[in-house]
Design a protein around this nucleic acid. Sequence first.
RNA 1: GGAGAAAUGGCAGAGCGGUCGAAUGCGGCAGUCUUGAAAACUGUUGUACCGCAAGGUACCGGGGGUUCGAAUCCCUCUUUCUCCGCCA
Length: 424
Amino acid sequence: MLQTNFIKENKVLVIERLKKRNIDATPIVENIIQLDDDRKKTQQTLDSLLSESNQLAKKIGDLFKAGKAEEANALKAQTTELKEKSNTLKEQQNNITDQLNQLLYQLPNIPNELVPNGKTDSDNELIFENNKKVELAQSNKKPHWELAKTFDLIDFELGVKITGAGFPIYKGKGAKLQRALINFFLNEADKNGYQEIIPPLMVNEASGYGTGQLPDKEGQMYYVTEDDLYLIPTAEVPITNIYRDVILKEEDFPIKNAGYTPCFRREAGSYGKDVRGLNRLHQFDKVEIVQIQHPEKSYETLETMVEQIKQLLNQLDLPYRVVRLCGGDLGFTSAMTYDFEVYSAAQEKWLEVSSVSNFEAFQANRLKCRYKDKDGKTNLVHTLNGSALALPRIMAALIENNQTENGIKIPEVLVPFTGFNIIN
RNA sequence: GGAGAAAUGGCAGAGCGGUCGAAUGCGGCAGUCUUGAAAACUGUUGUACCGCAAGGUACCGGGGGUUCGAAUCCCUCUUUCUCCGCCA
């Protein structure tokens, strides 16, 4: 969430920038500023009341010790009134902070000035395209769900039997290709200096709030009621929350962690052709890279992360493009996001395989992840993350684009990991 | 799952209901000494909020209660440790 002081000091900017998201934040911002002023005033009177009580209590103690019980008991009467007053004030104060927090939770991150205006993904800004789209012969233009069946790589129906729709079962070479991709991605992350993490796949409520899945995206996560835990929708949640309530030193930057995890998403409201095959799943695998960086360096870092993901796709030899999300398409917590899309020649469409974002201090403020600068002052850090990469659509694009008359060719970089170079 | 013990600052570890934001040790930072380092010595060293400042307020695992006054007493939740049971 945004910091109240930042909103106060940059009111015009905040409202202006949030217009990129096609929202008029004026009323909510005004409300926040008003509530914060109220909060300060209440705190002032409350603090002085408490101070008075503290002094009185001390005096009573001294009197008792001096053996002046009568005087002490006389003073006790005064404390009752003070206590009542301070209790009501405390309640008021709690009310105000609750309201304030609720409003702050509703306010999304302010987009970076480079974020284009727009409403839908068609307004996203094309940043890069490697122009490697391939043409497939009509005879070899099968979508991955057909190829998966032909070569017995993935069994969607069996997944339905075991669990339900959106929980595919990978088999044989399909499973091996999957494992090869995970290892390849993790190795690359390692080469780029990320520490490998194997986090828990379930998180508590506090972690959900820390990275911003809660309170607004509750319906997206699977929730284990009995134990009050959430299945992670992305490794971003546990890996970033490692730094919840942590104060870092300046020399700790940058912190680079990467982790492979399955991801669980309820995807309520999805339907139709978009959910066919691997295009949208309830459980999928992903390698996530997460960085914690000095505020002055976060955008530089974002670009290096983009570069790292490009290298992955280059090595896999896939046609892809990078877009900068427009305000309307931008996630709630992000200040700037690049999406990576690979082109599927068989489906004849772009598939989103990665999303790299700079959250600036938005997550850090919820996480209370700070660093001490040279003057000893604590400031919020900037957090970033990106998929490097999400498996299913990579898998889909790989088998679709590489289908030949003789079978599906495996990209060279993966062969050491798969142990085979063709699926036939 | 059953029985017991515990939770205090970066760490270790004191703390009779008032003099406790909290002893002491270690660590960190700054300085003195030194050609430099070590040692020794001196000082400093939690977070948040309010306030121009002086200063004030809150926080001793979380929440609630008793009391004029709670780190200290009571209730509750969570976590950790020990023992027993079960088990990858």
